[in-house]
Design a protein around this nucleic acid. Sequence first.
DNA 1: CGGAATTGTGACGTTACTGTCACATAACTG
DNA 2: CAGTTATGTGACAGTAACGTCACAATTCCG
Lengths: 228, 228
Amino acid sequence: MKPYVLIAEDEKAVSELLLYNLRKEDYDVGIAGDGEETLIMIDERTPDLLLLDWMLPKVSGIEICRRVRTTGVNPNLPIIMLTARGEESDRIRGLDTGADDYVTKPFSTTELMARVRAVLRRIRPGLKEDRITVGDIEIDRVAHRVTRKGEDIHLGPTEFRLLDYFMQHPGRVFSREQLLDTVWGSDVYVEARTVDVHVGRLRKALRNSGGDDPIRTVRSAGYALRED
Amino acid sequence: MKPYVLIAEDEKAVSELLLYNLRKEDYDVGIAGDGEETLIMIDERTPDLLLLDWMLPKVSGIEICRRVRTTGVNPNLPIIMLTARGEESDRIRGLDTGADDYVTKPFSTTELMARVRAVLRRIRPGLKEDRITVGDIEIDRVAHRVTRKGEDIHLGPTEFRLLDYFMQHPGRVFSREQLLDTVWGSDVYVEARTVDVHVGRLRKALRNSGGDDPIRTVRSAGYALRED
DNA sequence: CGGAATTGTGACGTTACTGTCACATAACTG
DNA sequence: CAGTTATGTGACAGTAACGTCACAATTCCG
């Protein structure tokens, strides 16, 4: 199951940047805009990680941190503090209140994501990342494995990437050119018709494990994965 | 019992400053001056926390970090990296290698102490076991012994580490580069194809004790251990 | 130091994947 | 319905990846 990361952040721009990047790394994400909301959302579903702004309306980040540590459902809930302040006294206060890590705004997203991975790896060692299920098809991007109705399906590298891409955007139609750009790479030149052949191979492989064709041909537009 | 903190730091001034402050906060403290010494001291008495300089003579800090994570007596040993470098790429590399936290020199002792408290306060769930079983294969990391269906299997050091790493992440595919980084070490250069040969040897050894090939080749991606 | 064990690497045969063509089939259009 | 356009698919040849072997280099150990 995907790790659930809760963002408690007042600034819209920051929280949406985080949302975007966390989703890209395949986490479940929730956003709380102020302190009260944060406490409620933690109660509703215990996050695996809390990205917590120091300054939050209504209830401050540091107060939330303290409450989680002393009274929360999961007192060990990993917390990464976000703050605009850089003064040392505050940093120490943040860590001593029980935050596991501390990032100063403006932060680099790449670095923050690395910290997120570091914290989550600690909490859930051997975490199964990156699994997507659409209908009866499941793709495990880490194990590089595809199953349909539990049955294993062998795909070549290109077919795998193709399916992977479709499954990241179920229902959406992609032109042959788009698929070539993203699945093949923008720097190689191959005929557009090649996509047809590989879609055909992918279909064949998926058909072998029962069920009907999950790929929809959209005439004069491209292909899409059925949402189901 | 007092927590035992091991300092691995080349600079005398820094390590003595740390020693002084850690003792003041009532920790047991050990000091290792270079990489080799660090590895020996970890063997002698497993620390509760390692303060690890990035640049160490003989064996680099990052290499020690990696070894602790992949082959150490306690792969979950908390590590705080100390470094003079501040470049982002290094910071990320440090975190991704498995460091729990990261402090840039010159650091404030008060802040570092706060981080030490933060790390030690944290409870580490799911300590890595001495023994792992995947399918009919069992690996005993303490006794350095591998069995399949009860039968003993002799593996060379590299094959052992390779299998160990696979078994820590069953099902997950690793590229040759990843395997070289983690199993061989980030500082040695060997051909990627070397992995093939060792995987071949591992396969052969495992096949000898009956059963079929537990290692899955993922074309153009790498290798993985079958989960079973 | 010398033999044994372990590890690295070039060579080579084999397999699997890929892109393209040619033609068959299906879908649109008027 | 016939012509046109778009799509499906088998065949094939070129290529890259793979597994294994043989041997070289290195390390280990007495």
